[in-house]
């Protein structure tokens, strides 16, 4: 297939006004494995991606650079001492006086996940549900491409975008940690970045799946953001309760952070849990997306 379909520059002389249907001989549907949709979506969002890249890099850069002034000088420990013990535990500031604790509490425990989730949830909710709702997906869906392929390529765009932003986080932190001689190992930094990527991917995937299953952007955002906030709160409350271990067990935030990945590395069961949280909804929703009415 796709033989006559190449954008030929050769002989279009005689074709000026002649409208010649291909006569059923050689219609050219999208080749399997093609990434036309993925490339188009990335292209359409290139400006937003550049903006987020800059934002993520700047925030990471600023926070890591604060360490010599804040942590090294003992300012943070002084601050923590004046705070109630419970609050300190809830915020995960117990170890904020060490470089690893500082990075875990700021970039990897709060700002990184927030930035990545704001980006990931809105991007994931828009790519199927949002564009279906505003009608811009209709031409793509009426093109010779299977629904499943549209779905998969759009999902992969979310994965790639999040992966890219996490690489930016990793590059900035690894670079600055080395420059400021903060004594945190690069493997640990990469491990925690991978954990943060999986965390953002998990909730973004939930949003993507909810949107693709329902065709409603608001549902996608509500489900994704709702779960993320609940998970964060559960993780924050766990240390405050006498018997809070079950909260850690059900919170994806805890799956990512409870093992203190900058010290002990990423928890393997935790990481696998995040992968499952990403892939199970995405796998289930494609079935629904393939069957339901689109654009209603």
């Amino acid at each position: 297939m796709a033989s006559d379909a190449t954008p030929s520059t050769s002989t279009d002389a005689s074709s000026t006004a002649a409208v010649t249907p291909t006569g059923g001989s050689d219609p050219s549907p999208q080749r399997a494995g093609s990434v036309t949709v993925l490339r188009w979506v990335l292209r359409q969002h290139r400006r937003a991606l550049i903006g987020w890249t800059v934002a993520v890099a700047v925030v990471c850069g600023i926070y890591v650079s604060f360490w010599p002034a804040m942590g090294d000088a003992g300012e943070l420990e002084a601050l923590i001492e004046g705070m109630p013990e419970g609050i300190v535990a809830a915020l995960g500031y117990d170890a904020i006086g060490t470089p690893a604790g500082y990075l875990e509490s700021t970039i990897f425990g709060l700002l990184g996940p927030i930035l990545l989730l704001v980006f990931g949830l809105t991007f994931a909710a828009k790519l199927v549900a949002g564009e279906e709702e505003d009608g811009t997906l209709e031409l793509e869906l009426s093109a010779p491409i299977a629904r499943g392929s549209v779905y998969l390529q759009r999902y992969l765009t979310v994965v790639l975008a999040l992966l890219w932003l996490c690489l930016v986080v990793a590059a900035v932190t690894v670079g600055l940690v080395a420059a400021l001689d903060m004594q945190v190992g690069t493997p640990e930094l990469l491990a925690i970045t991978l954990g943060m990527f999986l965390l953002a991917l998990a909730f973004s995937s939930v949003a993507f799946a909810a949107g693709a299953a329902t065709g409603r952007k608001a549902i996608a955002l509500a489900v994704g953001a709702g779960l993320a906030v609940a998970a964060y709160i559960a993780n924050a409350l766990a240390p405050l309760l006498d018997d809070g271990r079950w909260l850690e067990a059900i919170s994806p935030f805890a799956w990512y952070l409870a093992s203190e990945p900058l010290v002990d590395g990423l928890s393997v069961p935790g990481a696998l849990g995040l992968v499952a949280l990403a892939l199970v909804p995405v796998g289930l929703a494609v079935v629904r997306f393939d069957r339901r009415d689109l654009g209603v």
Binding site: T22, G24, P27, S28, P29, Q30, Q44, R47, D134, G135, T136, E138, L139, S142, A143, P144, I145, A146
Partner: peptide
């Protein structure tokens, strides 16, 4: 499926186009 749609030219009733 796609093979059939390759032979169709379609103009939606509510055409929505956006983007830079």
């Amino acid at each position: 499926g796609p093979r059939q749609r390759a032979r169709i030219g379609y103009l939606p009733g509510e055409l929505a186009l956006s983007g830079r």
